[in-house]
Nucleic acid binder design. Structure first.
Lengths: 156, 156
DNA sequence: TCAAACCGGACGGATCTCGTCCGGTATCCT
DNA sequence: AGGATACCGGACGAGATCCGTCCGGTTTGA
């Protein structure tokens, strides 16, 4: 019952992209430096985002990634499902291959409701919502020196 | 982003218990036969439920498990968290050990909202809700013979 | 032609999942 | 007292998933 690092990194990387002028092509090196994400992992994640049409990739020298839509038109649900696959609290809730327990499985109904709630939340949030409020870690640590201790929560 | 089998089995086992007169002591062998759950696994799961105070255990001959409260007073949230540990979409959302990304992490806020939605759903559902609508698999297969083909969904 | 940058598959260690097994202990029955 | 019964609890283990890394291949620009 957790989000994967891949999805986390994917969202973070996209916010970094979304903070720039629309259409700007950025290398993964830049993005992962900005958000402190392992380089080759983020590369792999962005391959999925490209395949899902969220991001466009440009190869060769001067290449990189750019958003293929406005940040306000990309939902968190899209991003997360592009990386993790469809959100399904249980096997039988993904495609309707029927529940293995019984005809009217109460548990599956419950899980279906819960699952739809989180989908609603993710669907209602766009990348611009996320990018607006997010301050990249690298900026914070730079401003703070390298004190690696407890972080006073800023901004409620 | 999935519920574990353990939680699934736990809920199922408890519904079997909840269908009986309150306080009746039932062996795990009976419960797992009824719900078609591996015996030793369910035993282990019920240990957690006992530790969480959801179920009472009786040892020795004639022993087994019984609900320690009315089914209407046991929430799905309790059950699931007793088995899986606290629901936390991300490490930083469990106890407040602060987000590793930044002060005002937008992603964590989003995940927190989604997580609370599912907690609400689980909290609003009781064991009696689940037990009422659930027909154990064993009963279905008995009534149907051993046709292992596609199951026509009964009851909307 | 060369270097830059993404593509995509293989690999690998760590962790989690899904159980099983077995000796220990508490309880009941005779 | 002595068994038989049933839960307790820890160890074990196969398999899957997670979290990345690596490297050869391909595309592109200079």
């Amino acid at each position: 019952m957790q989000i994967t690092r891949a999805a986390e990194y994917g969202v973070l990387g996209l916010t970094a992209l979304a903070r720039r002028p629309l259409g700007e092509v950025v290398m993964v090196d830049v993005l992962c430096a900005e958000e402190e994400i392992p380089r080759s992992f983020l590369g792999k994640i962005f391959q999925n985002l490209a395949k899902a049409g969220i991001v466009k990739s440009a190869r060769g020298s001067g290449g990189g990634f750019s958003l293929s839509r406005l940040p306000g038109q990309i939902t968190a649900l899209e991003i997360i499902e592009a990386i993790e696959g469809p959100i399904a609290f249980q096997r039988c809730l993904d495609e309707d291959l029927g529940c293995e327990h019984s005809g009217g499985c109460a548990l599956c109904s419950l899980l279906a409701v819960a699952q739809n709630r989180v989908k609603e939340v993710f669907h209602a949030t766009t990348l611009s919502d996320l990018a607006g409020r997010h301050i990249p870690n690298s900026a914070v640590t730079r401003a703070r020196g390298k004190s690696r201790g407890k972080i006073p929560l800023a901004a409620a």
